[in-house]
Design a protein around this nucleic acid. Structure first.
Lengths: 241, 241
DNA sequence: CGGCGTCTTGAAGATTTTCAAAACTGGTGG
DNA sequence: CCACCAGTTTTGAAAATCTTCAAGACGCCG
């Protein structure tokens, strides 16, 4: 089910990502002990890290690469909930709630992850109140984001939602060196799976934006030409860079 | 903005609702102290308990009545996020995250609430790890629910979503004595605001269900006649009573 | 009884999906 | 280097779904 390749461990000691996240709360001994409670794997493009319904056994810490988290719906259609890249930790929600996974996670490119044993993560959580507080806030932010998306799905048309998604990508994943080309590459299908529409519809809207000189596209590269127009098209009340 | 009426305090001591929720974690002294850190109010039908953007000052404990929590969207349209009645506590999310309110709350009928001061609630939270754990799980459940709704909004048509909503109401708020009439009264507009569609569309669908003998309606009373057919119409993978 | 708010129905028009076909891309092997 | 293949992207057209506007019905309350 999950054909993947165990690889040599990356040291948490030198991994800034880990330190930036939950690991900042650990004392040196705990930090050292992490090494004995983890394994590292490489997931090839398209492989599942976990699947909705599975029982969580690890906290996943993305060392490099990119992952999409999604719900599988009707007729093989998916709804992408979010993307996570090498700055982030995934799978904490189900661990804390002691629940099965409610989302599936797939590597969008070859992705290296450090997998910390559930029991050790729980142990750390119990000894560090601030970690729980931090994660609670994170879940809270997620909830607010999802509620906003729900509002868009309920009240906006595909043109507005697609514009909104482009703004979200710009804000969240930033730009390339030129300052206007999106720093994330998605397939048209992934666009559709996030916006919540059909492949063809999202293609038509992106073509329109291109024709209207709001963006320019070259394969999967998208350059934002007219940010003001994009914000107006998204019909958002307030947009903060 | 919030014309409402302060009323005499209801004792937490004798309030089973409070005890059933967070208050179960408190010791007798803390429980007693609650009395000095709260006030009680009656909100008349249609009045706001709080409004999106407000700064939270209280934890709201619903003593009697019913409240809807919603996001205000485009052109005066609302999206109802959830309903809460006299079994529940609202407003903890923004308190914990130290955030402004992201939802608005309106009394659907005359509603009596006990309002616990923010600072005392935070104090209690800091002394009771289990409270934070409990609330984190609650937020987690909410997140899962909202993600499922997002999937429906993205992939299902209004007929399916309306059937799904009826199932949700049956499961969550139960039935009247006859075992088949929904124990909650909503206006057609509230139906539309939850399902994420227009007033007219939801009315047409409810009429169809009535014509097809899946439900029978009398004003706001809805009786489920054919549960199997309703489940099939909702197109849910698994439905648990 | 009259008035108001809620509910219902009809019909036109807009939006979106679906199906089908064609164009384009990158990689592979001759 | 070129032909070919599979996967992805694009376009067109018909059909389904949904919204909007307008008008009328219903039920409740003073």
């Amino acid at each position: 089910m999950y054909p993947n390749e165990r690889c040599e461990k990356t040291s948490c000691e030198t991994c800034l990502h880990a330190r930036k996240k939950f690991a900042q709360y650990l004392n040196p001994i705990e930090y050292q002990a992490l090494e004995n409670h983890k394994l590292c794997k490489v997931f090839k493009k398209g492989q599942y890290l976990f699947s909705s319904g599975d029982i969580p056994r690890y906290l996943f810490c993305i060392y490099s690469g990119q992952v999409k988290l999604f719900k599988e719906g009707i007729n093989d259609r998916a709804l992408i909930i979010r993307f996570e890249n090498d700055k982030n930790v995934i799978g904490y929600r189900s661990l804390i709630a002691n629940d099965i996974y409610r989302l599936s996670a797939v590597a969008m490119e070859d992705t290296k992850v450090c997998m910390i044993e559930k029991s050790y993560f729980i142990f750390l959580m119990q000894n560090h109140r601030e970690m729980l507080t931090e994660i609670t806030k994170k879940i809270n932010d997620e909830l607010e984001l999802v509620q906003e998306r729900m509002l868009s799905l309920a009240q906006k048309n595909i043109r507005e939602r697609t514009a909104e998604f482009l703004l979200f990508l710009a804000k969240t994943y930033g730009m390339e060196a030129d300052g206007k080309t999106l720093n994330i590459n998605l397939s048209r299908q992934e666009f559709a799976d996030y916006v919540g529409t059909s492949l063809e519809s999202v293609i038509r809207i992106i073509s329109e934006f291109d024709k209207d000189k709001i963006i320019s596209t070259h394969r999967r590269k998208i350059t934002i030409l007219d940010m003001d127009q994009l914000i107006r098209t998204a019909n958002v009340l307030q947009y903060t860079i």
